[in-house]
Write a protein that binds this DNA or RNA. Structure first.
Length: 423
RNA sequence: GGAGAGAUGCCGGAGUGGUUGAACGGGGCGGUCUCGAAAACCGUUGUGGGGCAUUCGCCUCACCGUGAGUUCGAAUCUCACUCUCUCCGCCA
């Protein structure tokens, strides 16, 4: 959510942001007009209320019955006027909320301007993609051959975009989750276990609703929504709270499954385990002071990179341009890991700074000292990392000519094997 | 799933239609006292919106779980919902 004062006082800043984000369809004129109307009506209705409050108190003290009856009749009329204004006000506020809820966050000035993902900028590549002396296989061949990924049975159970991980495949994924959580714990993040289903308000506060409604699974009977990322419950963990400045920053990490309908990606990436309706992810999340958010943000990026470095995987850091930036974020770095079998860079992490955008929606504030005015915190989130794609990278990068897969050193204790062979 | 009880400010807890934004106690903060501290005493202590001033600030409206309603006037009455607790049932 943007500050209405920003829209009111510096509409050009917002207009520039919309242009940079390639959102020419959204305009501010209606919002600005509604905002003016709202304040006008509010003023009228408050004046009437003030009158009614004073007179009502007088009525309570009145002895003269005739005078009393006259005042009551008078105030009844005032009450009717207030009701009429209130009805009008609610209508306007509903329209205003609907429109402002659709305004995306303002990009950080350092974000390169560009209309779409083709204008993202690769900042650096870390590590050398492994050179193979044989033709590396894609995981969709490697996995079934090893008996660790079962696409047929996944489809039998749940349909397309589902799969079963078997034996060492399941163990390898669990090893990755445990390794990531342990690493983040060492880095200083507090691990939390979260609800995987949440209320609509929780999704709204994280910026998923109303915009991404079509990408979410929803239980109509109980009105539960399946989380598309742990970022959603993590954002609301401190929703409607005023924190002490001394408590900040708060660093959290969590493992959750993520559920996505992938309506927007119909027909895309159907092969393999790259894009499923259900996938696992370890997420990092921070609440911090506004003046520290940039520093905390880059530290989080380093923490996500450490996961890939620990696994010995080559990756690159990409900065998203304004047009590819997601709705609620000011700045985003993607981490992409090299997958030699698929022959592409796979996005395994998105590290973003939301500024105070999510904090406004979720109403998360802090106070610098006793009696000081409450201010909005900044929130940061980053995957650390998305599981199926990291699993792909491990399988494809650590494969050997005979089709077996060497287990990276830090995962061996969890997997209980040094090499995964056909089972 | 059934029966009952409850939801008030940082916390505990009063308040059943009018001068209550809210008694009282605790905690916090400021002060007096003190070499310092404790005790005692005094003061203070919510959020959001709008307007004026834009330098301390001032005025006003709303908020006592949430949403509707009754009323000149609601924390207080009515209805619905949510959550918490207790007991019973069921269950991994």
């Amino acid at each position: 959510m943007l500050d209405i004062n920003l829209i009111r006082n510096q509409p050009d800043v917002v207009r520039q942001s919309l242009a940079a984000r390639n959102e020419p369809a959204i305009t501010l004129d209606e919002i600005i007009a509604l905002d003016a109307q709202r304040r006008d009506i509010l003023k009228q209705s408050e004046q009437l209320r003030a009158t009614r409050n004073t007179v009502s108190k007088d009525i309570g003290r009145m002895k003269d019955a005739a005078e009393r009856a006259a005042k009551i009749a008078e105030m009844r009329a005032v009450g009717d006027q207030i009701d009429a204004l209130e009805t009008e006000l609610k209508k306007i506020e509903a329209q205003l909320d609907e429109l402002t809820a659709k305004l995306p966050n303002i990009p950080d000035p350092r974000v390169p301007v560009g209309p779409d993902e083709d204008h993202n900028v690769v900042l650096r590549t870390v590590g050398e993609p492994r050179a193979f002396d044989f033709e590396p296989k894609a995981h969709w061949d490697l996995g079934p051959a090893l008996g660790i990924i079962d696409f047929e049975r996944g489809a039998k159970l749940a349909g397309s975009r589902f799969y079963v991980l078997n034996g060492h495949g399941a163990r390898l994924q669990r090893a990755l989750i445990a390794y990531m959580l342990d690493l983040h714990h060492q880095q200083g993040y507090r691990e939390v276990y979260l609800p995987f289903m949440v209320k609509a308000q929780t999704l709204f506060a994280a910026g998923q609703l109303p915009k991404f409604r079509d990408n979410l699974y929803h239980d109509v009977e109980e009105d539960f929504w399946m989380v598309p990322t742990a970022e959603v419950p993590l954002t609301n963990l401190h929703g409607d709270e005023i924190l002490d400045a001394a408590q900040l920053p708060l660093w959290y990490c969590a493992y959750t499954p993520c559920f996505r309908r992938e309506k927007m990606s119909a027909g895309k990436d159907v092969r393999g385990i790259k894009r499923g309706h259900q996938f696992d992810k370890v997420e990092m999340y921070k609440y911090c002071l506004p003046e520290h958010s940039d520093e905390e943000y880059h530290r989080m990026l380093a923490d996500a990179e450490a996961v890939l470095q620990g696994l010995g995987l080559a990756y690159r850091v990409k900065q998203l341009c304004t047009g590819d930036l997601s709705f609620g974020m000011r700045m985003t770095y993607d981490l992409e890991v090299w997958a030699p079998g698929c022959n592409e860079w796979l996005e395994v992490s998105s590290v973003s700074n939301a500024g105070d955008f999510q904090a406004r929606r979720a109403n998360i504030k802090f106070r610098r000292e006793k009696g000081a005015k409450a201010e909005f915190v900044h929130t940061l989130n980053g995957s650390g990392l998305a599981l199926p794609r990291t699993l792909i990278a491990v399988l494809e990068n650590y494969q050997q000519a005979d089709g077996s897969v060497v287990v990276p050193q830090p995962l061996r204790a969890f997997v209980g094997a040094d090499v995964i062979r056909a089972q």
